[in-house]
């Protein structure tokens, strides 16, 4: 490979006001990973460069950094794949306080994981001679979440986290899925209740950044979606986000024998989302008035699309499919 300009974040919280990008020029050997490059920089060019690393085989989760603005494992990224116009930018993970160079304070990340009570609560207390049985099919439901290596890439790049530091975050929610869906766990409902609270699973905005950045099969967004489906199926719909989902479904696909319109009813949806909360509904009024003033308000009588029968048919099929799935 030709010479690459590595722009690496340098910072010492004892002496520097803010981080700066320092340029290092390096000709990465054939097949070098970004971790190999960081080590070459540290060992040959600047011994003071500090970063975490350990296994170098993508299983310990230590070396997550932001590469060209996005979280990745340095050990799992080929340098050749990260170079853009002869340059690579390497910065610390986001959503956490910086300590030094590429090292951030991980304590908030661990604290978020701890909040979901991430340990199995066995479904019995009787004495046992053997392992509990679990079908291959049931094991597969928790397989993906169990591949999480706690690298905090998802936590770093989560958009909700950025505006709400109290949000549980993608890794914690993926971890929670692994217990909610574990046939051996006794606390499924309590767990869903906990996750359904404010700053929990309903606060995710489905931007999919977490799953895009996840270096394993854990894919938090998919796990969050499974959690939400489980909560809905269990009738845990008494919150704005769940009602919002129901509102979508009802206005497009219909419910309880009333046919949907085939398109989103934007008058119905916000009101439906607020449920029976008078305060919530009142809070919609100023927005509604502003929309009205700017002529952005949706039509008061909902339009029904052509071929709405096809849409309703699709929703009936979904319902049948879901019922089969439950069996």
């Amino acid at each position: 490979m030709a010479e690459v300009r590595f722009l690496v974040s340098k910072y010492n919280s004892e002496t520097d006001a803010k981080p700066r990008l320092q340029e290092f020029r390096l000709d990465p050997p054939q097949g070098a990973t970004l971790l190999d490059c960081l080590n070459l920089i540290k060992w040959k060019l600047d011994g003071t460069l500090s970063f975490r690393m350990s296994c170098r085989s993508a299983i310990c989760g230590s070396c997550a950094v932001r590469v060209n603005g996005h979280a990745r494992l340095a050990c799992k990224t080929q340098a050749a794949d990260a170079v853009i116009d002869g340059r690579v930018t390497i910065e610390p993970l986001g959503n956490m306080t910086l300590i030094r160079d590429l090292v951030v304070d991980l304590e908030p990340f661990w604290a978020s994981v701890e909040k979901v009570r991430p340990w199995l609560v066995p479904d019995d207390s009787k004495k046992y001679e053997r392992e509990r049985l679990q079908s291959h099919h049931d094991q597969l439901k928790i397989d993906a979440a169990s591949t999480c290596i706690m690298c905090a890439s998802c936590f770093s790049d989560c958009n909700v986290m950025e505006v709400d530091p109290k949000f549980l975050g993608p890794a914690a929610l993926a971890k929670a899925q692994r217990f909610v869906f574990d046939t051996r766990d006794a606390e499924k409902w309590d767990r869903l209740e906990l996750l359904g609270q404010i700053h929990g699973m309903w606060d995710c905005t489905h931007c999919a950044e977490c799953s895009t950045r996840c270096p394993t099969d854990a894919k938090p967004l998919e796990r969050i979606t499974e959690l939400r489906r489980a909560a809905m199926a269990a009738g845990m719909t008494d919150n704005n986000a769940a009602r919002h989902v129901l509102g979508f479904r009802e206005s497009i696909g219909g419910f309880k024998g009333i046919g949907g319109s085939g398109m989103l009813n934007e008058n119905y949806l916000p009101v439906r989302s607020m449920g029976l909360s008078i305060g919530g509904i009142l809070s919609l009024i100023p927005v509604g008035l502003r929309m009205f003033a700017r002529k952005k308000n949706p039509p008061l009588i909902p339009h029904v699309i052509e071929k709405v029968g096809e849409v309703r048919k699709m929703f009936r099929r979904f319902d049948e499919y879901n019922k089969e799935g439950e069996k």
Partner: peptide
């Protein structure tokens, strides 16, 4: 020892009878 690890929640691959 392995039975204990299973009871603590370890996710093992399973055979057709649901055993480890």
């Amino acid at each position: 020892t392995i039975t204990e690890m299973e009871r603590l929640g370890c996710v093992f691959s399973r055979d057709e009878k649901g055993r480890i």
